[in-house]
């Protein structure tokens, strides 16, 4: 990142924090509704992720620019109006680019307004950081959100219809798990991913503990 080298406080971590350690979906559990609702195919998940990233970048940037102008008492209302403005822009933009995707996502494009992740980033990060730092962080968060959507979308499409991006993956003998495309599938797949991450984290912790005790053993000897 060029910006990261020029200015001291922007580190690689400002960007990476959204991808893994504070991933908005898998760690913070924010913005769950679109995550579950539109991830029944990879294409929908990607479109939703990009739309949300765009709104996130624009609105946190705007909040960061206006952060000294907005009075503290009405800040939430001001943020919401800024977000709603950019969502309206995205709404018309997607309608113009692809009517097919617009119909598939339905009301969930307009519901980006109430994605708690965006409001959360505006409040927690953009309102107290300068523009360049905010943009780097928001980009990381947006990419983290998109990756999470793709994680869910690919599993659900693969199991639910035996396809990936519309191309068949398994042979004709594959019996699709229709349940994965239906609402319960969304809950189960997200639950499954959370279980996987919790398991990885627990193994890491156990390994760290074991290493520490081994090192302690060396010191005694």
């Amino acid at each position: 990142m060029a910006a990261g080298q020029q200015q001291q406080p922007i580190t690689m971590d400002t960007f990476l924090v959204g991808l893994w350690r504070e991933n908005p979906v898998f760690v913070m559990l924010l913005g769950m509704c679109p995550v579950l609702a539109v991830t029944n195919s990879v294409a929908n998940a990607l479109a939703m992720g990009l739309a949300t990233t765009f709104v996130l970048l624009c609105s946190t940037g705007m909040v960061s620019i206006l952060r000294s102008v907005i009075p503290k008492e009405v800040r939430i209302a001001a943020y919401i109006v800024i977000i709603a403005t950019f969502v309206t822009v995205v709404d018309y933009l997607i309608q113009a680019i692809s009517l097919e995707i617009y119909n598939a996502l339905g009301a969930f494009i307009q519901l980006i307004v109430v994605n708690c992740m965006i409001l959360g980033r505006a409040e927690a990060f953009a309102s107290r950081n300068r523009l360049s730092r905010t943009m780097v962080n928001s980009l990381g968060m947006g990419i983290g959100f998109t990756i999470a959507l793709l994680c869910l979308g690919s599993v659900r499409e693969l199991l639910g219809s035996g396809e990936l991006l519309g191309y068949p993956v398994f042979g004709a003998a594959f019996e699709p798990w229709v349940i994965m495309l239906l609402p319960p599938g969304g809950f189960f797949v997200l639950g499954g991913w959370l279980l996987l991450f919790a398991w990885i984290k627990e193994r890491q912790q156990q390994r760290a503990v074991r290493q520490r005790t081994e090192e302690a053993g060396h010191d005694v000897r």
């Binding site: 319960p184 809950f187 189960f188 639950g191 398991w199 627990e202």
Partner: peptide, 21 residues
């Protein structure tokens, strides 16, 4: 221990959603 918290809640929601289908 790995299923405590959010993962468990989501699985419960999945089962409820299955019932509502």
């Amino acid at each position: 221990s790995i299923a405590r918290g959010a993962a468990m809640s989501l699985m419960l929601a999945g089962v409820l959603s299955l019932a509502f289908m």
